[in-house]
Amino acid sequence: MRKPYRPSLRALHSTCEQNYAALMKLAKRLSEVGDSVSYLVGKGQRFRLRLDEDFPYTSTISIEQQGLMPQYLKALMMVRLYHDVRMAEVCASQHFSRLAPRYAYPNDKMHQPDEKMQVNLFLTDWLKLCLKEGRSSSDLLGTLL
């Protein structure tokens, strides 16, 4: 019989700390609620970061994939930044919000037992890709002028 999944708080915290550091580099131009910046990755993959909420200790940034593809295929995440502890956590992904630390498996919504960790690791991979290969909309504008 398989052991039930037990979330590792240490691994989740480490991932959230890495995500915070990377996201702060990409979102440095977002200073007021409603500000956004787009990143072009590869040929035609465009992602938009938008500052949705900004408070002294927390901020919320939405990350949305843009382009010509069906809506259900586009990446969409809401990320909460905790500035006092320097952590960024995915609080909603693909229209699922309030992710639980673990899920029984199988379940009605087809969540993996470690869904919360998986979406935060996806954010890690996405941030690495944007930092390595992404060009911001202002970078692109500068090359056109």
Rank of each mutant, 00 (worst) to 15 (best):
M1S: 14
R2S: 08
R6S: 06
P7Q: 07
P7T: 02
S8C: 03
L9K: 14
L9G: 15
R10L: 13
L12M: 10
H13M: 10
H13G: 13
H13T: 14
S14K: 10
T15K: 03
C16I: 02
E17N: 07
N19T: 05
N19F: 05
N19Q: 05
A21T: 13
L23D: 00
L23T: 02
K25M: 11
L26T: 01
L30N: 01
S31Y: 05
E32L: 04
E32G: 00
G34I: 04
G34L: 02
S38K: 07
S38N: 05
V41T: 10
G42W: 05
G42A: 04
G42Q: 02
K43W: 07
Q45F: 08
F47H: 07
R48L: 00
L49D: 01
R50W: 01
D52P: 00
D52A: 11
D54K: 07
D54Y: 03
Y57P: 00
T58G: 03
I61V: 06
I61R: 00
I63N: 01
E64G: 08
Q66I: 10
L68P: 05
M69T: 12
M69A: 15
P70N: 13
P70G: 11
P70S: 13
Q71T: 14
Q71P: 10
Q71I: 12
Q71M: 11
L73H: 14
L76P: 08
L76H: 15
M78K: 14
V79C: 01
L81V: 09
D84E: 13
V85I: 15
R86T: 11
R86K: 15
E89D: 12
E89W: 05
V90Q: 02
V90P: 00
Q94G: 10
H95S: 12
A100Y: 06
A100Q: 12
Y103S: 03
Y103N: 04
A104L: 13
P106I: 08
P106V: 10
N107T: 08
D108K: 14
D108Q: 14
K109N: 09
K109T: 08
K109Y: 07
M110Y: 13
Q112N: 11
Q112A: 14
P113K: 03
D114E: 10
K116P: 01
K116D: 03
M117V: 04
Q118S: 12
F122V: 09
F122Q: 12
F122I: 08
T124Q: 15
T124D: 15
L129M: 15
L131S: 09
L131Y: 08
L131H: 10
K132L: 13
K132C: 10
G134V: 06
R135Y: 12
S137E: 00
S137W: 00
S137V: 01
S137K: 03
S138I: 13
S138M: 10
T143A: 14
L144C: 08
L145I: 12
L145S: 14
L145C: 13
